[in-house]
Design a protein around this nucleic acid. Structure first.
Length: 273
DNA sequence: AGTGCGACCCGAACGC
DNA sequence: TGCGTTCGGGTCGCAC
């Protein structure tokens, strides 16, 4: 499912194809997906040209002359750049382009969302205003997370999933980061020490970089699409695993903050849960 | 302010 | 085999 590495891959592929093209028409087949005014979404993008495509955390942002088109793929969203003109099942938004190709958004779960805002309002009128730093951000250091973790009575697992604290880690990668850092997912964020914060930062970078290198993670049924059939699942250490690669213990699964969490009790020092 | 949880979806997996 | 039920995933928005 698309997390930061997958979104980065999609961004790179789309960027190669879309820059310089303009939009002729927008068709929205599932209006609930559009979180800003629907008529504006359909009308204002006409004749807009793609200038750039950016990524913030797991959010994809198409920059046009006058607007920012914000898109979150959630679990199964994907884009197709194609000259096919028919609409297939689960395709919800179609951008007809100036070269007669189409940019098609497909999402089986209908979980993805889009926002259209005036240029300059990206961090004012969309959920992006809440995003914390990315693992790759030069401004990210021990003090930043120390401040964020302070007084946090929630588990480190829950806190690392909170995009307003650190942006870009999803359920799979948080499990991997905590395993690599030898930290119990149950540990309260406020009890995480400086050394552990250091490990979390390093592991996050390493794991995301490697995941980007392999094009992201493909688990559960996931048909290949534009640039997003990753192979990082072959390098997972705990998530979806049964036996620990390091110590041979049985990997355990618990619900933490409502999310299924994989961990090695021995490597991550979990006594009883 | 911090925390918890339902809602949003529907195919796959599960239970009978 | 076929049917009904449950689950999961990220984020928002609301209730406490």
């Amino acid at each position: 499912m698309p997390e930061l590495p997958e979104v980065e891959t999609v961004r790179n592929v789309l960027k190669k194809n879309l820059i310089g093209l303009s939009i002729k028409k927008v068709v929205v087949l599932y209006p609930n997906m559009i979180k800003t005014n629907l008529n504006d979404f359909k009308n204002k993008l006409i004749n807009e040209k793609f200038i750039d495509i950016k990524r913030y955390g797991k959010w994809l942002v198409f920059e046009t002359n006058n607007y920012s088109l914000v898109s979150h793929l959630r679990m199964e969203g994907k884009y197709y750049y194609t000259d096919r003109n028919n609409i297939e099942k689960h395709e919800h938004v179609i951008f007809h382009l100036s070269n007669n190709y189409n940019l098609i958004y497909k999402d089986v779960r209908k979980f993805g969302v889009m926002y259209l805002v005036d240029k300059g309002k990206l961090f004012v009128d969309t959920p992006l205003k809440e995003l914390g730093l990315e693992p790759f951000d030069k401004k990210l250091d021990v003090n930043y997370l120390k401040e964020k973790f302070k007084n946090k009575n929630l588990s480190i697992k829950t806190v690392l999933l909170d995009q307003s604290i650190l942006s870009g880690l999803g359920n799979i990668y948080v499990d991997e980061v905590l395993f690599k850092s030898s930290i119990s997912p149950f540990k309260k964020a406020k009890d995480i020490n400086e050394l552990e914060i250091k490990l979390i930062i390093e592991s996050s970078k390493e794991i995301l970089e490697k995941a980007i290198k392999y094009g992201g993670t493909t688990i559960r049924s996931y048909t290949s699409s534009l640039g997003v059939t990753g192979s990082f699942q072959d390098y997972l250490m705990v998530h979806t695993k049964k036996i620990c690669n390091v110590c041979n213990s049985s990997i355990k699964i618990s619900k933490i903050g409502g999310r299924s969490t994989y961990y090695c009790p021995k490597c991550q020092g979990v006594k009883d849960e």
